[in-house]
């Protein structure tokens, strides 16, 4: 066991939590992420393997799926981002690679992203000031890449109108956090 102490993307030792009214923004550091991209000619096998890993079909474009151990969302043609609890799955890339073998390229993405959960009954009022997502069609299980404060982010609808997960580039965690909380104050 190594002895290096991690810090969160926002630079703290504990996850940051901010509330405005009944909407709460929580930094979620305990997310392990790995990108899975099917090898050329192995797309079908790769998707099947992912289905068995997830326990449900690999999500189609614009969608996310949740399994027992792993969750996943679509990131590109024959490409997905898989996530799991960081505690216990810090080696997510190696675990997934052992499942997919030569049918997919797996890349650790855990610390490429900062993860926020935005939860509360009026999150759509916040989201419409943050990003260009058609919220009427953004049902639970939808996932999209969009620009927030000029940062390419993934937004995943975990409970339509009540809860979204936002993944943004980790190095800009501070800017992204600032953008979200100022807009929370503005919208709520």
């Amino acid at each position: 066991m190594h002895d290096l102490t991690p810090i969160t993307a926002l630079g703290g030792s504990a996850a940051r939590v901010d509330s405005v009214g009944d909407v709460t923004l929580t930094e979620v550091p305990d997310v392990a992420l790995a990108s899975v991209a099917a090898r050329r000619g192995h797309e079908g096998v790769c998707a099947q393997t992912l289905e068995s890993v997830l326990g449900t079909a690999a999500p189609s474009p614009g969608h996310a799926a949740e399994g027992a151990e792993y969750a996943a969302f679509w990131t590109g043609p024959d490409q997905w981002m898989l996530s799991a609890d960081f505690n216990g799955y810090e080696d997510i890339a190696a675990r997934i690679k052992s499942e997919v073998g030569d049918t997919a390229s797996v890349t650790e993405q855990t610390d490429a992203w900062v993860c926020f959960d935005l939860v509360g009954p009026h999150i759509n009022a916040v989201l419409e000031l943050l990003c260009n997502v058609d919220l009427a069609g953004f049902q639970t299980g939808r996932a999209t890449r969009t620009s927030i404060h000029h940062l390419g982010c993934y937004v995943i609808s975990t409970d339509a109108g009540q809860s979204v997960r936002i993944l943004g580039p980790r190095a800009s965690a501070g800017s992204l956090h600032h953008a979200i909380i100022t807009v929370m104050a503005s919208a709520l």
Binding site: A37, R40, Q79, E108, T110, D111, A112, R170
Partner: peptide, 14 residues
């Protein structure tokens, strides 16, 4: 287009 190559940025991961 037929090449078996996958790309992803890892700049901020490390």
């Amino acid at each position: 287009p037929e090449a078996d190559v996958q790309l992803i940025s890892t700049t901020e991961a490390w």
